[in-house]
Design a protein around this nucleic acid. Structure first.
Length: 580
RNA sequence: GCGGCGGUCGUCCAGCCUGGUCUAGGACGCCGGCCUUCCACGCCGGAGAUCCCGGGUUCGAAUCCCGGCCGCCGCACCA
């Protein structure tokens, strides 16, 4: 029995509310809709903007001493995804039953039916195994089609030539990797360096079905954190503490409950293979908590090797339990090692290494090949250039071996040269550092899933009324302003208050229709944390009431201090600390 | 992609089996009016649906049949 059935299935109610009040709805509805695409409505857009900004606060602003944000295009040339491995790996081999039409992962089918290790085999291998062994559809026994691959990248062309193939990015990461050197120089060549990006990505999912959980296009929030794996420790004084983890080996034992363990301990014990991966998991835990998801409602599940992406040495998914769908992944934490930068070095020919100074310069003895060009020039003439090229590619040991043997001349790399013209010398050299390819730890969030998770956690009912207990910081509308009654003198003051709060930068709604109770209910339903009511007492002493969404408690404050009190209540007071 | 179930005002649902009386009904929500001094009050009125799309059967289709699209569930798939 799935765990999710133990919880009241609020999903339908949330979807209903989302449509009615304008959080989100399926895209292109007038044409029947297209699976995997959702619009965000007025409230959904504001909520998402707030979530995105909170993410930026945690991942960028609180780390702006070493994390910076950039923006790169959604469309990229084919070579980028050849380098990243997505053209080859962001794909699945599929066979189809010609009788019943069922589709199977070809490698899984071969493993299951033939008992062979097939994961990673190419299409031809899988195809021939299926033919040789006469594998058939496990469901109906029908003939199987040829193995083909389905790539989840959306393909397009760049400009008028169909040969200029481009793809919509399935992750923002590759834009950051390909711009690494620029950003690194702009950030004054210091490591560690986090490059953050918030942007749209697209994945051509075969059959997206879980509403806002699985979209073909969504907003991703990622940090590619470039660092030296042997370098300095993360700033544990900023984020640290215990993580709820479900390690892969525990999953293999059949465990389903996460264990709670201090992050530093988890790193020391090798459960988390990279310390920055662990650090950003701590940041993620706090960020998600501020969205209204308590520690006990989220944990990090390590992916098994075959579940991991091709670039990852270790992956944890941060999961959150919501109604209907159970535990859903809201963020992925991948230790990408130096895979991506190395691949981009190979395909672009550009150097992506970073200089790492030693604490003390070292004097080392090195062997170097020295060529006497004045001699060689006379002997080789125009052949000197190719000879020097070939020589450069040889190690000192190889050269030494070539120089052994009798006679005045030797043949090196096919060129006959005088022995005296090539020497291997030992030199003492001062080395102040070394170059290496930075490693990457990547926390990556899907914004729309967070919108859904926030709504799911916030959704409550109180005597048949819906109250969205959205955390104040991310509530789309912060304040509602009402006249107690629709009397001209109350309306006038209430409208003034409304305009004033709006001009001071708060998101505010004004409502005068229906009873005061109905208006509170309408505000509660879209998660407005505070409602300000102008009543008859206001007219005599300039005070109004502030009513709390969650407790229904009211306090009375003067109009003069209303704005400041609201900022305090909303947790935004710090932003105005310097205001008069 | 397969199988099952479904698609009717903004929302939820009735009607469909047994074709006509459906100019498609109700509730909630929305708008207006009256009433109302703090938690969806009451009364009155109004707007709002080419019944998912296309085709077929029929004198006549929301209703029956076929195809498509979309959604949910199961399978499969899923960075």
């Amino acid at each position: 029995m799935p765990e999710s059935t133990l919880f009241e299935d609020k999903y339908d109610k949330i979807v209903d509310l989302a449509r009615r009040r304008g959080f989100f709805w399926p895209s292109y509805e007038i044409y029947g809709g297209v699976a995997g695409f959702y619009d965000l409505g007025p409230l959904g857009t504001m909520l998402k903007v707030n979530i995105v900004n909170l993410w930026r606060e945690y991942f960028v602003l609180k780390h702006q001493d070493f994390v910076t944000e950039i923006e790169t295009p959604v469309i990229a040339p084919e070579v980028l995804f050849r380098a990243s491995g997505h053209l080859d790996h962001f794909t699945d081999p599929i066979v189809e039953c010609l009788e019943c039409g069922r589709k199977y992962r070809a490698d899984h089918l071969v493993e299951e039916l033939a008992g062979l290790k097939a994961e990673g085999s190419d299409v031809e291998e899988l195809d021939s195994i299926i033919r040789e062994r006469g594998l058939r559809c496990p469901q109906c026994g029908g003939d199987l089609s040829e193995v083909r691959t389905f790539n989840l990248l959306f393909r397009t062309t760049i400009g008028p030539y169909s040969s200029d193939v481009g793809y919509l990015r399935p992750e923002a990461a590759q834009g950051m990797f390909s711009a690494f050197k620029r950003a690194f120089v702009a950030m004054r060549e210091r490591l560690p360096l986090g490059i953050a990006q918030i942007g749209r990505v697209a994945r051509n999912e075969i059959s997206p079905r879980q509403g806002m959980v699985r979209l073909r296009e969504f907003t991703i929030m990622e940090v590619e954190f470039f660092h030296d794996p042997e370098g300095e420790d993360p700033p544990w004084d900023r984020f640290s503490g215990k993580l709820r983890l479900l390690p892969a080996e525990a999953r293999l034992r059949g465990e389903e409950k996460p264990v709670e363990i201090g992050v530093v301990e988890a790193i020391d014990e090798g459960i988390i293979k990279n310390k920055w991966l662990g650090y950003w998991m701590c940041v993620s835990r706090e960020f998600v908590r501020e969205l209204g998801i308590e520690y006990g409602e989220t944990y990090f599940e390590e992916k098994l090797p075959h579940e991991r992406a091709h670039y990852s040495a270790q992956t944890f998914d941060q999961v959150v339990r919501i109604s209907r769908w159970g535990w859903i992944e809201v963020s992925g934490h991948a230790y990408r090692t130096d895979y991506d930068l190395r691949r981009h070095m190979e395909l672009s020919g550009q150097d992506m290494t970073v200089f790492k100074p030693f604490k003390e310069p070292r004097i080392v003895e090195v062997e170097r090949v020295v060529a006497d060009k004045s001699v060689l020039g006379r002997v080789l003439g125009p052949s000197m250039a190719p000879f020097l090229e070939a020589l450069k590619r040889m190690s000192p040991d190889e050269v030494k071996r070539a120089l052994e043997g009798p006679g005045e001349t030797v043949t090196i790399a096919g060129f006959e040269v005088p022995k005296s013209a090539v020497r291997v010398v030992k030199e003492r050299e001062k080395v102040s550092g070394t170059r290496f390819v930075p490693h990457v730890a990547e926390p990556s969030f899907g914004a729309e899933r967070l919108v859904l998770a926030v709504l799911d956690k916030a959704y409550t009912e109180d005597e048949g009324r819906v109250v969205l207990r959205i955390p104040r910081r991310v509530a789309p509308v912060k304040v509602a302003v009402f006249p107690l009654l629709e009397k001209e003198e109350l309306v006038r003051v209430a409208r003034e208050v409304y305009m004033k709060l709006m001009s001071l930068g708060l998101t505010v709604v004004y409502d005068e229709s229906g009873s005061i109770g109905r208006r509170y209910a309408r505000a509660d339903e879209i998660g407005v944390p505070y409602a300000v009511t102008v009543d008859f007492q206001t007219l005599s002493d300039n005070t109004v009431t502030i009513r709390d969404r969650d407790t229904k408690q009211q306090i009375r404050v003067s109009l003069g201090e209303l704005h400041r009190r609201l900022l305090e209540l909303l947790g935004l007071a710090a932003a105005t600390a310097l205001s008069p």
